[in-house]
């Protein structure tokens, strides 16, 4: 397999100190760091529907040893995540080597090879009272009036068990201390979390950051359509600022102070 060969080369030629990919263990594909010492382990390298935020592991490694050269098995979303982490100075692009997997549909590969691309089934009750995973934010906005939008989202948010899975799995969440655990913003020990503030805090922090990998939605045990929510976040950022996180290595509009103001505050409609 070409990928295995390429990864082995990276290690053997000392281009990287560690290569992050997946390996099957006890029947599960789990992330694994392959090293030169155990280079033959790479024969068990797996590429499949399973996804983990390998970039997050890379960040943790880089924190411990900023000089460490890291190879990564990179899907399309990983590429975006890496771009974003370069932008925010969490990883040094000079220390990262990627072996890319083309998994999102493109002219070259018409089918997607990713859990993210398989439409998630939405149950009837969810369809009637909650938010459809596969709805587009624009359609959602167009098809429901404001009261209904609120009640549907509140239905979803109230299921939250505050497990922090969405944050823990997020490849672009790198803060050392998270606002979602800030006692002044989110009262500790209260379940379910106060709606919608808990989710809006996270949504706001995702503005200009979310690279639309969908891992949060996959991880959520309460089936909250988070990817759909953050796609709205991305739509808003892209509509207002023309910025698509992870597209390029380019600073977020929220971390640049301009010299001129082009946006004008929206008028108050009564």
């Amino acid at each position: 397999m070409d990928m295995v060969k390429a990864a082995k080369e990276l290690l053997l030629q000392d281009k990287v100190d560690i290569f992050l990919g997946y390996r099957k263990l006890d029947g599960h594909q789990i992330p694994h760091g392959f090293t030169k010492a155990h280079v033959d382990d790479l024969d068990q390298l797996e590429i499949s529907l399973n996804r983990y935020p390998l970039e997050k592991i890379a960040c943790d490694l880089a924190q411990k040893d900023p000089a460490l050269k890291i190879g990564i098995l990179a899907r399309d979303c990983s590429q975006r995540a890496l771009n974003l982490l370069y932008t925010w100075d969490q990883l040094n692009p000079e220390n990262i080597e990627t072996l890319t997997v083309n998994c999102c549909p493109s002219p070259l590969s018409t089918h997607g090879d990713c859990s993210y691309l398989t439409p998630k089934p939405t149950g009837d009750y969810k369809k009637a009272h909650g938010v459809d995973y596969n709805d587009s934010p624009k359609d959602f906005l167009a098809n429901h009036d404001s009261g209904e939008r609120l009640s549907r989202w509140m239905y979803e948010f109230q299921k939250c068990i505050k497990c922090y899975g969405c944050r823990n799995v997020c490849p672009v969440c790198f803060c050392k201390e998270c606002s979602l655990e800030h006692p002044n913003l989110v009262e500790p020990g209260v379940l379910p979390a106060e709606v919608p503030i808990f989710h809006l805090i996270r949504a706001t922090h995702m503005a200009g950051r979310c690279i639309d990998c969908g891992l949060c939605e996959d991880a959520c045990p309460a089936h909250i359509p988070l990817r759909m929510l953050y796609r709205e976040v991305n739509d808003a950022v892209s509509d207002i600022f023309g910025y698509v996180p992870g597209d390029h290595i380019e600073k977020s509009p929220f971390s640049i102070i301009g010299k001129t103001v082009e946006l004008t505050p929206a008028p108050m409609d009564v």
């Binding site: 934010p137 429901h144 706001t204 709205e232 509509d239 600022f241 929220f254 946006l263 505050p265």
Partner: peptide, 20 residues
């Protein structure tokens, strides 16, 4: 900066059904 943040949050609140 304020106008940027507010423009975004207004959009988000609208999505949640909390516009205005």
């Amino acid at each position: 900066m304020t106008v940027k943040r507010i423009a975004f949050v207004q959009e988000l609140l609208k999505f949640m059904g909390l516009e205005g």
